[in-house]
């Protein structure tokens, strides 16, 4: 049952991701990206990571993509205003992203032989375990990441200010 669900969700994720790239209208692209995020959140639920799935939806679909949509609607991007790239630029972009794909696939090759250090338990992605891990084993990286986000926020506010007193 879960295998079929996995294949179904993977099919949806890949199809929507392709539609993001292929659709002409930027608004449609953003909406397809939201659907892709939903398919990926479904994968998290299949892996028993409910917290991650919920946060993924809240942060990406609920906040970041709304801002994307917001900007695109304000700028009113259309097919006509989109600048046309030359052929060699398209070709080099295809080569660059193709080689990135090869590297990603290569790095994942043999991943199925790695044995997990913790035996699988069905409560592994629940919030209690996640909190214990984040605040005991990975406290320093967690706090450093929060400072990084704070720095980015302060930087954005400074850039947005008209004049610095």
């Amino acid at each position: 049952m879960t295998t079929y669900l996995f294949y179904f969700l993977s099919f949806l994720a890949i199809m929507f991701a392709l539609m993001v790239v292929l659709s002409k209208n930027p608004i449609h692209s953003v909406l397809y990206l939201v659907l892709t995020f939903f398919a990926i959140a479904g994968h998290y639920v299949l892996l028993n990571a409910q917290f991650l799935a919920a946060v993924h939806i809240i942060v990406y679909a609920g906040a970041i993509m709304v801002l994307f949509l917001f900007v695109i609607m304000l700028l009113n991007l259309n097919k006509d205003t989109e600048p046309h790239k030359s052929l060699w630029l398209k070709g080099s972009a295809a080569v660059a992203s193709g080689s990135l794909l090869v590297i990603l696939v290569g790095s994942l090759r043999g991943a199925e032989q790695i044995i997990a250090s913790n035996p699988y338990s069905n409560s592994i992605g629940l919030i209690e375990n996640l909190g214990q891990t984040l605040f005991k084993d990975f406290l320093l990286p967690f706090e450093v990441a929060s400072i990084l986000l704070l720095g980015a926020m302060v930087g954005a506010v400074m850039l947005g200010k008209k004049s610095i007193k």
Binding site: Q50, I58, G62, I127
Partner: peptide
């Protein structure tokens, strides 16, 4: 009784804006 009931609720609330935005645009 979701283990993350509040987060589920919050996620659905944050999606509510799409209907209005898509309709408006």
């Amino acid at each position: 009784d979701l283990n993350i009931g509040i987060l589920y609720l919050f996620g659905v609330i944050s999606l509510g804006v799409y209907g209005i935005m898509i309709g408006g645009w």
